[in-house]
């Protein structure tokens, strides 16, 4: 028996969410009294792989063949399922991100393993295997039992703390036998924003809504975000209007994020918006309307005009930064 964790990499690097997932895998393997096996696909240097040993991985399987640098969901599913069988893994874990969402359901079918996506805690019991996730876009929680012998889970970002546990995992190369012809997904072009903090990775987020009135008023939002090292986000009407890029749209139909700090400026706090941000550890609202629903979701609030409050906040952050 083992817990298999798929450790995705981005240009050869792991992210904090990778280590969260590994820590989570370790916690489950302790409950089940078994080991953690990590699977890495794509070119990742051993030095980077060894970092997984900071969080309790017992064994690392790597596939470094360039052939696997394109994400073909069908091929990846077969590869991960084969490794799961070779390693006799009963629990397979992925991050609840674009890749995890694409692969976990396929794995569930291939392995006939019950799937629970976006889990937020360690199982309350492993026998029966009982996990908790959010439902109704954050308006409730459900406790589920996975009935099958094998299980596939995806873990929500920022829901499990990193737990250091030094191990010295061995690294094994694995060569699945697929050929180029098996890859039906042909990627013609990759467009990546460079140098910009990615919203879903950000620990701090400054977000603007329709209350900002015009795309020309975003200067202070960007300045505040820059000073804090935060990413920028927005409400749906703002991205629908083309005031801000679609990648910034947060909410039920946009990105669901869980940063440590979410500052909502000129956002009313509609239920669909809250669905994307309510897992933030701390929410700050700035709004002219004292009755705006955002204040019910917020931890700290300022009733006031964004155009006056933001410059003052910027000054305060500058002072704070010069003092610290």
């Amino acid at each position: 028996m083992a817990v298999l964790v798929y450790t995705e990499n981005w240009d050869g690097r792991f992210k904090k969410s990778t280590y969260e997932l590994v820590s989570y895998a370790k916690a489950i393997s302790d409950m089940m009294e078994t080991t953690v096996v990590a699977l890495s696909i794509g070119p990742v240097e051993d030095k980077e792989l060894e970092k997984l040993g900071d969080y309790g991985v017992d064994k690392i399987i790597k596939i470094s063949d360039d052939l696997y640098s394109v994400l073909d969901n069908q091929v990846y599913t077969r590869v991960i399922a084969d490794v799961a069988e070779n390693e006799d893994a009963n629990v397979i874990l992925l991050s609840h991100n674009n890749t995890g969402k694409a692969l976990a359901p396929r794995l569930s079918v291939r392995l006939k393993a019950g799937l629970v996506t976006a889990v937020i805690k360690v199982p309350s019991s492993v026998e029966p295997f009982t996990v908790c996730k959010k439902v109704f876009s954050g308006k409730g929680f459900v406790h589920l039992v996975v009935l099958s012998e094998k299980k596939v889970l995806t873990l929500s970002k920022n829901s499990f703390e990193l737990v250091e546990k030094k191990t010295k995992p061995g690294i094994e190369e694995y060569s699945p036998d697929f050929t180029l012809g098996d890859f039906k997904t042909r990627v013609e072009k990759v467009d990546k924003q460079t140098g910009k903090l990615i919203l879903t990775d950000a620990e701090l987020v400054v977000s603007g809504g329709r209350g900002m009135k015009s795309p020309d008023n975003w200067g202070p939002i960007e300045e505040l975000a820059d000073l804090l090292g935060a990413a920028t986000a927005c409400s749906r009407p703002v991205s629908d209007e083309g005031w801000r890029p679609h990648e910034e749209h947060t909410g039920q139909t946009g990105k669901v994020i869980a940063p440590n700090l979410y500052i909502a400026v000129g956002i009313s706090g509609a239920i669909q918006h809250l669905a994307g941000i309510s897992s933030s550890k701390c929410i700050v609202a700035i709004n002219t309307d004292p009755d705006a629903p955002i204040f019910e979701a917020a931890d700290y609030g300022i009733v006031g005009d964004a155009h006056k409050v933001l410059p003052e906040l910027i000054t305060a952050v500058k002072e704070y930064k010069s003092e610290n």
Binding site: L115, G138, F141, V142, D299
Partner: peptide
């Protein structure tokens, strides 16, 4: 392959400061 056991509502948030 899965069964829902029970639901829970989120804890009410403390009032906004």
């Amino acid at each position: 392959l899965t069964e829902m056991l029970s639901f829970e509502l989120p804890q009410p948030k403390p009032p906004c400061k």
